[in-house]
């Protein structure tokens, strides 16, 4: 059986290589050659239309971002609002994965959407990429910053900047026109959206991670057509791919981008302690706000307990990864043991 796989991104993006490439390589190995994959390009399915592509079966395994479909996946999308808890990408990827697998409401949502969750990943810790220098809280006041999601917008407002809503593909143009003074994003955006041509400063202020991801959403019919053994094999392959993805997106990409940025003459600024402090206080204040958002906008009940559960998992994985270290194989073994080996493949996602 050859599955139609859709990273929703071009080959240069980590969602394609290594995420989907690893899955396509590992799939036959983990399933005795009974499952293989064919990777489709973004001209067939992109992150914007992935839900429809998955539901209709055009795509059988797709990269589904909950923040694009918060009405369908409110419980998974909510974890995106906790971006500022992110300090280590592998921790966040593993915590998100365990959270969704063990959260009943999340599983219910996936069932309704017609897909099965098979793992998450995380970006690097976001920073500010700007055309003007930022050292003090005063420097940032009134700056127009592109926000990649609502927690970043709330942070910008908290700190006195004005968040601007710019579609990701318009970032380059908006920055080159001067409509925005900067963007809150991954350092890898410097190369992947070519902001390296425009930005002059990397402001090393940790703004949290983008971890509300569903790297592999499997079409429910395709999942049901697999035997329990094939499902187990699929998840083993997916798990390796997820870790490889976070390794690339969370660390390697941004490191390479930073090196290139330095070559291109961008300046890395370590801002004053005051900016760190105000960001710290934002994180605590914001957790209370998130509960309100969850209930009023996402229609989620029991948000406080859910947020507490996620924080618990972040702490749990911080400890685990402290112990096993940052070798991808070791982390993959840990997530396999702690999360995926505990799943019952007769009933999961059915």
């Amino acid at each position: 059986e050859e599955l139609r796989l859709a990273p929703g991104a071009p080959p240069s993006h980590p969602a394609h290589t290594p995420l989907y490439v690893t899955l396509a390589e590992e799939l036959p190995k983990e399933t005795d050659g009974t499952l293989t994959g064919n990777i489709l390009g973004p001209e067939v399915a992109n992150v914007g239309n992935m839900k429809g592509a998955l539901q209709s079966g055009v795509v059988q395994v797709g990269n589904l971002l909950p923040l694009y479909f918060p009405g369908d996946l409110p419980n998974s999308a909510l974890m995106g609002d906790l971006a500022f808890l992110g300090r280590d990408p592998q921790v966040m990827g593993a915590a998100m994965t365990e959270y969704v697998v063990t959260c009943e409401d999340c599983q219910e949502e996936f069932k309704k959407l017609g897909a099965v969750f098979a793992g998450a990943g995380s970006s690097d810790v976001y920073v500010l990429l700007t055309t003007k220098p930022v050292r003090t809280p005063d420097d940032i006041k009134g700056m127009r910053l592109r926000s990649g999601g609502s927690p970043f917008a709330r942070w910008a407002e908290y700190i006195g900047a004005s968040p601007v809503n710019v579609p990701v593909n318009d970032t380059f143009e908006s920055m080159s026109q001067g409509v925005i003074d900067g963007t809150m994003g991954s350092a890898a955006d410097l190369t992947s959206y070519r902001l390296i041509d425009l930005a002059k400063y990397i402001i090393d202020l940790p703004l949290g991670t983008y971890h509300a991801t569903v790297n592999f959403a499997v079409n429910t019919d395709a999942w049901k057509a697999m035997s329990p053994e094939q499902r187990r094999g699929f998840v083993r392959a997916a798990n390796k791919a997820n870790i490889a993805f976070t390794q690339t997106w969370g660390y390697e990409r941004s490191n390479v981008a930073r090196e290139e940025a330095e070559k291109a003459g961008l300046e890395v600024i370590k801002p004053d302690q005051a900016l760190f402090d105000v960001t710290e206080s934002f994180v605590e204040d914001d957790l209370k706000a998130v509960v309100g958002i969850a209930e009023s906008q996402y229609g989620i009940t029991d948000a406080e307990a859910k947020i507490a559960r996620f924080r618990e998992l972040v702490e749990k994985w911080t400890k685990i990864i402290d112990e096993v270290g940052h070798e991808p194989e070791a982390i993959a073994a840990a997530t396999q043991k702690e999360v995926w080996d505990k799943v019952d493949y007769e009933s999961y996602g059915m």
């Binding site: 429809g52 539901q55 923040l67 694009y68 479909f69 918060p70 009405g71 369908d72 309704k112 959407l113 926000s147 999601g149 609502s150 917008a153 709330r154 407002e157 968040p163 809503n165 958002i293 906008q297 996402y298 229609g299």
Partner: peptide, 23 residues
């Protein structure tokens, strides 16, 4: 049928911190 599905899901998008219904 697509519209019904979006209606049932109550589809919306976040614009900065405002939820905009799109269904």
């Amino acid at each position: 049928s697509a519209a019904l599905r979006e209606y049932e899901a109550g589809s919306f998008v976040m614009s900065l911190s405002v939820a905009v219904p799109i269904w």
